[in-house]
Amino acid sequence: MAQFSLAWESCNCAAVRFDWKHALRVLVVLAGGGILANAVVLPDVTARAVRAPAGLWWDWIGGLRPLGANLAWLQSQEAWGRGDAAQTAAFLRLAVELQPESLYFWSNGARLLALDLAAVADASGDSPDALRRAGMALLEQARTWHEDNPYYWVERAGLEWQALADGGLAAESYRRAALLPGAPYYAARLHALMLVRQGRLNEAHAWLCWLHPQLPAADPAAQADLVRKRIHGIEQQLELPAEQRYRQQDEL
């Protein structure tokens, strides 16, 4: 204790005498307030730590994390330009560690690996399959951060369709996207398209019949008429009898 007081004194920078009682009081106030703030007001502070501990080390650079992420992203683009898949992947990982809250790095990074680099993999000596898997793995990691974001699922569906050529997985991802709040209208239409491409016409018909009444006629992005046409097209393909065909409320 005496040594501590001596060290405190020798720094000669504090205006007050070191006092254990006061130090204890400070700790108690900080502990009480801190627990109230971190556990009650903002409990996801610790949740964040459990979710992505590795990236948290970058918190050291404070408010400049997004800047660091952008620099890492630029480096990944430069490595991609050289066709260096290993470096590209390394910088992409750094970018997403620095700013995991941004879907941009996850989705564009995954696309870069699974589509762009995989397309030129043979020339560079890399395995296209390994790159596609790496791209999908990156998106899978992003799920902890962006599971509730419909655009995450749209991006994932796109890669499952284009990189893995797996319409079933893509259909499921589009469905999840369409069911989330704030989803773009096209996600639901693409889900139906994926089902049609797989020959699951009945499922596609049921989905579009469920979807159509919810689409606002006044919003051109919703494309209610297009959906109506698609329903009609599927009904023709299925040769459904008139009583099983879709009718809007006003037609009934």
């Binding site: 502990a31 801190g34 703030a37 971190n38 502070v45 964040r48 700013q99 809250e101 941004s102």
Partner: peptide, 16 residues
Amino acid sequence: GLGYLLPDFGAFDLTP
């Protein structure tokens, strides 16, 4: 414990 005592400035990054 320190993680609980001190304010977490990372939480204030709402750039997204």
